[in-house]
Design a protein around this nucleic acid. Structure first.
Length: 384
DNA sequence: ATGTTC
């Protein structure tokens, strides 16, 4: 599916194996039309409506870029670690007990001087942000679709990448409040008009943007390491990939800016496409140089239901306890009752359809399929 | 997404 809209390349990667809302496609087209510097817009199979702009999409612009298109969670991404825990030696209940309440701010004595130095540098680069603010968020998962999930290997498609016997840890989180603060500050001055490339304002934003990317990555590292420590395991980072960002990019021989809004890069090696908390996650090898897809893949399953619809639809059919277990026998730890409904597997597309669509389009090769053992969404200290 | 938002 593709069309040319007053010179703008707009394409949606979809087929019968994936649900896609018309309103999301409309949002993609409207965005491509209304933001005048945009030359190309791509919807991935996880495309779904967002606040003004769709999620699961990539946009290429020339001479101008749009911070509002990236949104508030600058630097949000996935980190996958191979742990030294053997899958068969553990269980959801053992991990849950060992983790305890692990989503509160890190105790200050556990912050190393090196981390402290990194935070000081990031706080300054982000625009004189309060260091204490960053410290209070470091190592916390956040809300929405963020999680840290212990996973077992369910299937191997390409040998020699994942180890069938090991447990893996997937961390999905972002820059927490920092990216939101940077966006708010930007929108107060410039609204949604975007910035002229190479202007002072553009350089200032990109500097802050990069600080948010750095903080998000540091945050994922700390989420992972505190969890590994709690279960007395170690981990090896296999990939850490950001799906909300903007940066210089080439497209059709022209230099411009690529915005990814819930879109995983396909030009940075292996990536993971997670399903919902009651579904598989796929480690995949992107096919390189698919510029027709703006070098991007789906970043997950994508929402099927609006958050506001979930509780009404699920409460009559499921108890909270039922939603804290999944069809795999995995456990979902989440102290926020509303969030359990909003993040229920029923609220998401089936990841198999999303991945099948990308396979059919020739955008990736499968490496492995992971299934959840325990998902940590939000601890009691982190909410209420 | 969110030191949410009164």
């Amino acid at each position: 599916m593709g069309n040319t809209n007053s010179g703008t390349y707009v394409r949606v990667f979809a087929n019968d194996s994936v649900w896609m809302e018309d309103s999301a496609v409309e949002q993609l087209q409207t965005t491509a039309r209304n933001l005048s510097a945009i030359r190309a817009a791509v919807g991935l199979p996880d495309l779904h409506p967002g606040r003004g702009y769709p999620v699961g999409a990539a946009f290429f612009s020339i001479n101008h870029f749009y911070p509002a298109l990236v949104g508030g969670d600058i630097g949000c991404g996935m980190q996958l670690l191979e742990t030294d825990l053997a899958s068969h030696k553990t269980s959801p209940s053992k991990i849950e007990k060992a983790l305890g309440n692990i989503d509160s701010p890190l105790p200050e004595h556990s912050i190393t001087p090196a981390t402290y130095g990194q935070l000081e540098q990031l706080a300054q680069q982000a625009g004189d942000t309060d260091l204490r603010y960053l410290l209070s968020m470091l190592g916390t998962i956040g809300g929405g679709n963020h999680f840290a999930e212990w996973q077992a290997v369910d299937a191997i498609y390409e040998e020699g990448v994942l180890n069938k016997k090991q447990l893996y840890l997937l961390v999905h989180s972002g820059s927490r409040g920092l990216g939101g603060a940077i966006l708010r500050q930007h929108v107060e001055r410039f609204g949604h008009a975007g910035l002229v490339a190479d202007s002072t304002a553009a350089k200032d934003y990109l500097d802050q943007h990069d600080a948010a990317i750095g903080f998000a990555q540091l945050n994922r590292q700390h989420i992972a390491s505190r969890m590994l420590r709690a279960v007395r395991a170690t981990g090896r980072c296999m990939l850490d990939v950001t799906h909300n960002h903007v940066g210089v990019h080439q497209w059709q021989g022209q230099q411009g800016y690529l915005h990814r809004k819930g879109a995983t890069p396909s030009d940075q090696g292996l990536v993971v496409i997670p399903g919902s908390r009651g579904d598989f996650s796929y480690v995949v090898r992107p096919v390189a140089s698919r510029h027709d897809a703006l070098d991007s893949l789906a970043h997950g399953a994508g929402r099927k239901w609006a958050r506001s619809d979930c509780k009404g639809r699920l409460k009559p059919r499921f108890t909270l306890a039922a939603l804290q277990q999944t069809r795999f026998g995995s456990t979902v730890v989440c102290a926020d009752k509303d969030l359990i409904y909003e993040e229920a597997p029923q609220a998401y597309k089936e990841v198999d359809g999303v991945v099948q669509t990308l396979l059919d389009c020739g955008l990736l090769h499968l490496v492995a399929r992971l299934k959840p053992v325990l998902t940590y969404k939000k601890g009691a200290m982190a909410c209420c």
